[in-house]
């Protein structure tokens, strides 16, 4: 078991030397997952809030399906997006397959249900507390949604972060629709998979350490902002 200590020192030296290859791969990971989380959140926040307040037949079923889709297998999402974007597929003419854009689409699809389901839960709990007051103030359904999203903003950061964590850590979807092309679509997770299959375990593990460090730092920063803001706004 020499690999683990060896990989830690390799990880440190990769970071310390600002290895150009590593920076490019880590940067692409952040960009792809960042844009994916942005797109997914843009749709999931209003949809989750709407589902929290709406009452219609079959609502419980929709919620159950949405909650279930939090566990979508990345490879399956990747396969579906692959079929859509492949030359013969309905969106083949866009020429998006094996580009970072395709990876963004796949990850956004993967994490949209996660963010939407968590938003729905947070907003529905808040609605329980605010409902009578907002109705008494004559707030419309839309105004109530906006007010709740705004008031729960610090808690919702956690929902968005859960989506980001899932996106940046998954390998199945980006591998299929991105193709792990060196310098084009290679991200942290696909690089780790590649190094593992090549047998360069220390490098694979070192990349893993860097990936975990990135996620931890981002979560710490978000948690810090949230705590400060909560202390300030109550």
């Amino acid at each position: 078991m020499q690999e683990i200590p060896q990989s830690f020192s390799l990880a440190l030296s990769l970071i310390a030397s600002l290895d150009a290859n590593l920076l490019a791969i880590a940067g692409l990971s952040l960009r792809v997952s960042g844009v994916a989380v942005l797109l997914a959140a843009l749709l999931a926040l209003p949809l989750g809030a709407w589902l929290a307040l709406a009452r219609f037949p079959g609502r419980q079923g929709v919620i159950a399906v949405l909650n279930g889709m939090m566990g979508l297998p990345p490879v399956v999402v990747g396969l579906l997006v692959y079929l859509l974007l492949s030359r013969a597929g309905p969106l083949g003419s866009l020429g998006m397959l094996f580009t970072p854009s395709a990876m963004v689409v796949a990850q956004a699809l993967l994490i949209f249900p996660i963010i939407a389901a968590l938003v729905r839960q947070v907003i529905e709990d808040a609605w329980g507390e605010y409902r009578e007051q907002l109705l008494s103030l004559n707030a419309s359904r839309g105004q109530a949604m906006m007010a709740l999203l705004f008031d729960m903003r610090f808690t919702l950061i956690t929902a968005v972060l859960a989506g980001f964590g899932r996106a940046i850590a998954e390998v199945g979807a980006v591998m299929i629709v991105g193709g792990n092309i060196d310098g084009v679509t290679r991200v942290m997770t696909t690089a780790i998979a590649l190094e593992t299959s090549k047998g360069d375990l220390p490098l694979a593990l070192a990349l893993g350490v860097v990936l975990i460090a990135m996620v931890v730092v981002i979560n710490l920063a978000a948690q810090g902002i949230k705590t400060l803001a909560m202390r300030k706004h109550g």
Partner: peptide
């Protein structure tokens, strides 16, 4: 009729602002 009424509840609901 809606506009001409207001209500104060036992537990005040304060918005986070």
């Amino acid at each position: 009729v809606r506009r001409a009424q207001a209500m104060v509840f036992q537990r005040p609901v304060m918005m986070r602002r």
